[in-house]
Nucleic acid binder design. Structure first.
Lengths: 105, 105
DNA sequence: ATCATATGTTAGTTAAAACTAACGTAAGTG
DNA sequence: CACTTACGTTAGTTTTAACTAACATATGAT
């Protein structure tokens, strides 16, 4: 269950929003927290830690700031699983096509 | 947040195991439940419902049996998100390459 | 050295998800 | 019809995850 931590880390609305937020441009923790209303800064900080521990974001320190950005490599195993799931769809289509083929050879 | 239900449905070890289990071959509920020890049949039944509601498996009835199998289409939005995340890695590599290029034109 | 800024951490509380036990249902069998 | 098989459902409990409030740390400025 290698990619399970990845899924769990993504399975929370605030954390998923953070991931999308730091997808292209890196952002300091405070700025990330500022984007949410109804969620306190410490809560965001905890979410950032979970994302970091799961290897989905990197943290870089610049002075007193901590700057986060997406770490795409962290998603690789999950991506592979989904591709595997997707393949099962293609396999079925292929099997269905071959079945049709047999009927008028 | 269209694919969020997908992520949540996957974010539980038993459910993830079920998804892998019905990836290629369809299976009746009882047989699925039988594969787990330490998890009761009703619990598995509840997990199946969550997976079905999320559109990740289909249910087919055959006599008194309910047969489940993977529904790959259900993963499409999440798959797209991960591909989008992955792109951000490629974009960075491209940007880095272009930077190098400029140094000896 | 003092203060401000930016952020993380911890213990304790609250909220959400999973589980259990008991019951309900629907198809198949004698 | 009575009984069995194969499931699902519900209410209530337990477990897990998220949140809050108070405190801690580390950098930078005066």
């Amino acid at each position: 269950m290698i990619m399970f931590e990845t899924i769990q880390a993504m399975a929370e609305p605030t954390r998923l929003a953070i991931l999308k937020m730091v997808r292209r441009r890196e952002m300091p923790a405070g700025q990330i927290a500022g984007k949410f209303k109804g969620i306190t800064r410490p809560a965001v900080s905890q979410h950032l830690r979970i994302l970091k521990d799961a290897g989905l974001v990197t943290e870089r320190r610049e002075g007193t700031r901590r700057i986060y950005r997406l770490r795409p490599e962290g998603f690789a195993p999950l991506k592979a699983l989904l591709e595997d799931f997707w393949d099962s769809k293609l396999e079925r289509l292929k099997a269905a096509a071959e079945k049709l083929e047999k009927r008028k050879p």
